[in-house]
Every structure is written in C-alpha cells, then in structure tokens.
Amino acid sequence: MKLAGQMTASDIAAAKAALPAAFGTSPWRRLQRWLFGALALAWFVTLLVWFDITPARLAHGMSGVWVILRLMVPPSPGAQWLDILHGLGESVAMAFLGTFAAAVLALPLGLLGARNVVANVLAHLSLRRLYDGLRGMDQLIWALAFVRAVGLGPLAGVLAIAAAEVAVLAKLYAEAIENADPRQPEAVLAAGGTKLLAIRFGLLPQVLPVMIAQVLYAFESNTRSAAVLGVVGAGGIGLQIAERIKVRYWNEVAFIILLILATVAIIDVLSSRIRRRLIQAP
C-alpha cells in the first residue's frame, strides 16, 4: 500500500479502472439522474399549469386562510351548543352501530375468503379480489348513495359505515384466519368433529381476540369518518360543521373541530385499553 503522496498518475488510473464506483458516479448514471430530475420537474410544472396554481392565487388564498384562522380564535360553542352535542352523539352512535353490523356481517364473509376454510383456489381469489375492489369505494360514496336511497339522516350513515367496513373487515378476518394454527381444527376433526365444529372450537377461539382488536381499530377510524359523513347529509356532527361553514361562523367551526378531536382521542384511549386487555387475556 502506498501513501497518497507516493501515488503516481498511473496508479490512480489503475485504481479507477478496477473500482470505478469509488471515484464518483459514472457519466451514464449522472445523465440518468439528470433526465429523471428533468422529467419530474416537467411533470410538476405541467400540474401547476393544469391546476392553475399561481403565486398570486396562493397568496390570495393564504390571506383568506389567515382571516379564517383569526376568526376561529377564540373557539365558541355558539347558541346552538345542544345541537352540536346531539350531532356528536349521533356520530359516535353511527360509528358504533355501523361497525358492529359490519363486524357481524363480515364473519361469514371472512370465513368464506380464507384459504384454509374454503379450499377452492378460484373462489378464494375471486372473493378476495371482490373485497379489495369494494375497498376502493370510499365511505362517502356509500353515504351519498344511501342518502339518496333511504333519505337524509343517521340511518344512511349507519348503512354507509356498515357497507364500507364489511369488505375491509372481511379481508382482515380472512387474513387472521389464514394465519391461525391449523393443528387445533385438525384435532377437532380427528376426534370426530364436523367441519363446523372444527371452525367453532378449533379456529374461532384462536382468531377471536385478533378479530375483536381489528373491530376496535375499525371503530376508531369510523368515529373519525362518521364526523364527516354529515357533510353529504348522512347525519352526525358533519352536518353541523357544514352548516356553520356555509354561514361563516368560524369560531363555532373551530369549537366543533376541537370537540371532535377530543372525542376521537377519548375513544382511541378507551379502545386501546380494551385491546390491551384482550391481548393479555388467555
């Protein structure tokens, strides 16, 4: 090994030939990077032009946001605070009922979608694709459809939450069931039990805690989304927010947002407590 001062130009050239990567990126790589950067920049500029995003519009909007933020302080419940509380209760109730209905309905669907229960590959794949596809439809689309179908009010919200959550829970259930230990249902079958008994005594006790934990997660996320379903008329506190934004009572809007945040935080804490208990329980 030579010291740096003793290296000749030919040594360096030899090293460069042997280890090109140690002497910086090759021109080809550098060109690639430049091209990629240029492409990304072109995409970005195209979008800015397409969506008409100009500094003037941004500045104008920002000043509007600033005005709104100033009007939000101090948050105040306003005169109709009873309506707000009622809306909040309605939202939580919608989330609870909708999640419960979805949790029950998803049980048979989850079993059907699990490979170790229904062994048919075609049925398995097509069902799982169906669950995935239905997940692509946002809850708010369901809500809007149910509002047209059963009328304004919380019932539409409950049905929307249930419909949107069934596919999600069915998929999660199916995954949990597939991850279960196969030896316990096998033991039930070997002892002369039917397939149904094997599911009931070999499979369900294993996966029930996991399922309940998933349902609790779903409940948490649904309390969040139930807060906005009212925007399209499906009941709950979203209606209160939308109304107050329409008439620009920004301090009441701020109050409602804070109230939702507090409620969601409380429900998160409660549900994580229950979840922890479930996982500890034998």
């Binding site: 909007g61 509007g64 946001v65 005005v67 925007v231 947002i257 945040l261 969601v264």
Partner: peptide, 16 residues
C-alpha cells in the same frame, strides 16, 4: 386528526 374533507370545506372558501 382533522379529516381532509374538513380541510377541503374550509379551503374551498379561501382558495375558491
């Protein structure tokens, strides 16, 4: 913790 739809409701006022 604020849903994007609530942001959208407010920002539609400010940005059109």
């Amino acid at each position: 913790s604020v849903p994007d739809l609530v942001y959208a409701l407010i920002l539609v006022w400010a940005f059109g």
